[in-house]
Every structure is written in C-alpha cells, then in structure tokens.
Design a binder for these strands. Structure first.
Length: 346
DNA sequence: CATCGATGTTGAG
DNA sequence: TCAACCTCGATGG
C-alpha cells in the first residue's frame, strides 16, 4: 500500500520505540519462524529505509528486510512513544490525545534518515504544533496501524495483545509490540546482502539530498528513451515513488507522461527530483499524500480531510482538470493506471 | 454479504 | 504479459 513516505514514517516508529532495546521476535503465523529465531533476543541497533524498503539491524549483525508491497501493514501496540510528526498527524486527523507530559520535543528532521530543508517544512511544523502539544515524546498506551495511512484501532486489555489474523512477524519489547502482516518481502539478511539490495535502488531524496544524488537521477533519466511515466515508477531510477506520486509529480511539472526521458531538458528533470523531495517531506511530516500545496487555509483543511480533494489528477478520470477543465484521462502504463491531463501535460 | 480493486513486486511462461 | 502474493476498504445488491 505505501509509497516512500509511509515507509519512512514506520522507520521512525522503530527508531523511537525499538532501537536500543532487546527484541523478542516470533512468527505467530508460522511462516517466518526460522527467520525469527535468527534475530530473537538481540538488541535492535538501527532502523533505516530506502524507498519502499525498510531495514532493521540487530546486534548480531543481521538485518530484517521488509517490503510491505500492496497491502502490508505494521500494527504497533503498547506504550508507544509517538514521533513528534506522527503524533501531530494523528491529532490532525481528529484523534484526541490522552494525558502525558511533554518530555522532549524532537524536530522531525532530527531523525537520522531525514535531510530536511526547504520552506515547506516549517509550515508543516507550525500546523503540527497546534494539534499535538500534550503527547509528543510521552509514551501513550494505544494501538496504531501503519500502512499507507495510519489509524488508531481498537483498545486492548492486556499487553501484549493477542495476535489477530495472519501475523507474519511480531517484534516485542517490554513496552511495545509491532505485528507485520501481508508483506511482499520479509527476510533476514547479512550486511553484504543488505548492501546488494540497496545498490540496486535509485537515490532516495530523504536519504541523500546531495548534489550527487540529484545528478545521478538526472543523468539516468536523460539517457533513456523510456517514457518518463515509467522511469518515475522504476525503483532503480529513483526510489520510493509509486502510482500516486508519479501521476501528481508529472502533472505538477506539466509533463506528458509519454515523453521519453532523453527528450526532457536538464532543468525539467532537476525540477522533478526536487519536487519529489518536497512532496516526500510533506508526506513524511503529515502522513498524508498531499500533492496540492500552496492552498489557502480552507482548501488545505478540506484537502487534508478528504482524499478526493487532495490530488490534481490521481483517481480523477473523467473529472474536469482543476487547472484547465479538460477531462482527466485514464490509461494503462507499466501495468498500472496512469492519470493525466492531456491539455496541461504536453 | 459478495465482489472488486489497490498506494507493489516477483517470477513463471 | 500475467498470475500470485494476501489484506481490507469501498461498492453494490
């Protein structure tokens, strides 16, 4: 389900609640029993993600690699320390935060994998402050499902809660449990194998905001005859973009999805890279795939509340383009649905 | 309540 | 190119 932003948010939850602690690993469903035995009892020493892939390191040198695929999800339960941005995003979605004292307020981009910058961030943090005064940094007994969206699920009586359904992996500390269900990938890897996986991925702007990363993306795109609509979905070209961000990035740049990468100017491709970083940061800070920025206050609130009001073209086939009124087109590209405006994007 | 489709990837053919 | 993976919200009857 998730595109890159969700995976980075989940990684933050692991950094906050599991890194530095001994973890009991099990496979309630049974399919991961062997892998669980290799890491159970060890201290989690790192949590990082590249694109849509997440890696959790344990103190025996092994890593757990997880890819959520189309419908994977993590269910966290217990006395969860909410990352500042996650707490605030939930507050914005209407949940009421109970008790808790402010112990520390950690800026979102203090997280190791964030390369935050830009004006977009400050606006988000301002909004975050309005809604999350009382729970940031304080443990809170709750249960949260983290997938493409996050939502609080039902209460539970005893900790840890009884596993519900097909739980491939359960990670358990003395305070928090995390249940993984429905992943495309879940395996234990050696460090060299982790490196090999990452080496096959294109740059992730949240992981590497360097000029080299931008140049690498621009260089690859401008060399290929492949339509840009396919290149953006290719995790070897750029990591983390999925079907929603593909459509929205191309509309925002007014690019025809069929345009070959090599036909695009250096300037246009650099803009795509920077805009992807911009949208990714918004996604990580808010937990929403907000792709229409520069809205006034009322439109912003409406867009955050209703996903139908959150995108320029995604899932808007047949509706009038928000800019020119032309009907948004739907076609298949790369075996996925592609949404675009034939008037604006040419 | 049954069916469909999805923000993704892999591997068989 | 397409089925499989395995989950669940949205949709329709």
């Amino acid at each position: 389900m998730p595109e890159g932003h969700s995976v980075h948010r989940i990684t933050r939850q692991f950094a906050r609640n599991f890194v530095g602690k001994p973890v009991t690993v099990s496979s309630p469903q049974g399919r991961f029993a062997q892998g669980a035995a290799q890491i159970s009892g060890h201290i989690m020493t790192d949590a990082k993600s590249v694109g849509k892939q997440m890696f959790l390191e344990f103190d025996n040198g092994l890593w757990l690699r997880v890819h959520l695929g189309m419908y994977g999800a993590w269910d966290f339960a217990g006395d969860i320390i909410m990352d500042a941005t996650i707490a605030s995003a939930n507050g914005r979605m209407g949940q009421t935060n109970q008790r808790g004292t402010i112990l520390d307020v950690v800026p979102a981009d203090a997280t190791a994998d964030a390369a935050g910058d830009g004006e977009g961030d400050e606006r988000i943090f301002d909004r975050a402050g309005e809604n999350s005064m009382h729970s940031i940094g304080a443990p809170r007994r709750t249960r949260v499902r983290m997938a493409e969206q996050e939502k609080e699920t039902g209460a539970f009586d005893t900790f840890p809660p009884e596993p519900v359904g097909q739980v491939r992996v359960r990670l358990l500390t003395d305070a928090v449990s995390a249940d993984l269900r429905g992943p495309t990938a879940c395996e234990v890897l050696r460090p060299d194998e982790v490196d090999a996986v990452i080496a096959k991925l294109g740059p992730d702007p949240l992981l590497d905001g360097s000029q080299e990363a931008e140049d690498r993306f621009v260089g690859v795109v401008r060399r290929k005859p492949t339509p840009i609509g396919l290149l953006l979905m290719d995790q070897a070209v750029v990591a983390g973009i999925g079907n929603v961000y593909r459509a929205e990035l191309l509309f925002r740049a007014r690019i025809d999805p069929h345009a070959p990468g090599k036909s695009l100017s250096d300037e246009v491709v650099r803009h795509l890279w920077r805009d992807w970083g911009h949208l990714l940061r918004i996604g990580v800070e808010t937990g929403q795939m907000m792709t229409m920025d520069d809205l006034d206050h009322d439109d912003y609130v409406r867009a955050m509340a209703n996903r139908a009001d959150r995108h320029w073209v995604y899932k808007r086939e047949g509706l009038p383009c928000r800019v020119c009124g032309t009907h948004i087109t739907l076609e298949e590209m790369g075996a996925r649905k592609l949404y675009w405006c034939p008037y604006c994007q040419k």
